[in-house]
Design a protein around this nucleic acid. Structure first.
Lengths: 147, 147
DNA sequence: TTCGTTGCAAAAGGTTTGCATACCA
DNA sequence: TGGTATGCAAACCTTTTGCAACGAA
């Protein structure tokens, strides 16, 4: 379960224990996760991986377009492995961190319109949505994630 | 021209030379500007203001909703005084930094739809658009801002 | 006079880099 | 074996904070 064919490592990379572990941890994380959290999860799991390696692996994945990245309010980068189906926008709960991929055709269309209207080229867009999810909204006192 | 009635300082603030200078520099900057750039512009202008004060003033403006904030790819915060008409989304040129307020009703509507569809509440959204503006696209070799 | 404001220096926090070592191919 | 990847420590950068001095009201 750790060879490159199942971890999904790009063929040009060397398949190392550390990269496999990072990739697996990233995949296991249900929601957007910071490098530190990822590193902590790896340690808790018994996988010994340096924080530096976590950062470097995430950076590689970023270059390959294999992760979506958002920033929390503090500016920390949060990563999530990008599904193959092209979803790229998320609604993240500010309280528990749960994230939800949302259909964004409307935004894509809008971005295209902007390109046409302004004369800009190579337009890229980032959309970040945050709110309070229904379970969290129902339990206003709880700060901890709901099961 | 430096009293609080023209600098637009909130009445609850103390009108100090430094805050007036930061506010003026922010207003003079055509496009999104970092705290460091603002500080540099102030120094170049002969206004002696500590970097700390620039940060603190920007933070106050942020709390009052008087500035729009985007993050560049490095995560640095860029500030721009918010026009009174409620524009809140911008298209920023990656080459020269020029920014353009864009109509975003479509996005606002879409965000509202998302709220309705997901059960999330208190949804906030951030949209960042970047591209290459027409003048920059016409002069592919130039890295400097065009006049 | 009073209390908010300033500025320096230092801390904080996340992310990157230098360099010697370990290891995949 | 050869070149990549790793990991530690230290560097980097932006932003925040502690604290004594300053100044607007």
């Amino acid at each position: 379960m750790h060879d490159s064919s199942t971890t999904g490592l790009p063929p040009s990379w060397r398949a190392t224990r550390q990269r496999g572990a990072v990739l697996r941890a990233l995949h296991d994380a249900a929601d957007f996760t910071s490098a530190r959290e990822l590193h902590g999860a790896l340690m808790a799991d018994g996988a010994v991986v340096g924080l530096t390696t976590v950062y470097r692996t995430l950076r590689l994945l970023e270059r390959e377009g294999r992760v979506d990245i958002v920033r929390d309010e503090a500016g920390e980068r949060l990563y999530r492995s990008r599904p193959a189906d092209g979803h790229r926008h998320y609604l993240v709960c500010r309280r528990c961190g749960m994230s939800l991929a949302v259909a964004a055709e409307a935004v894509e269309r809008w971005a295209d319109d902007v390109v046409a209207a302004t004369g800009f080229s190579a337009v890229e867009h980032t959309v970040e949505l945050s709110g309070i999810c229904e379970p969290c909204g129902t339990r206003p006192d709880r700060g901890s994630p709901h099961p």
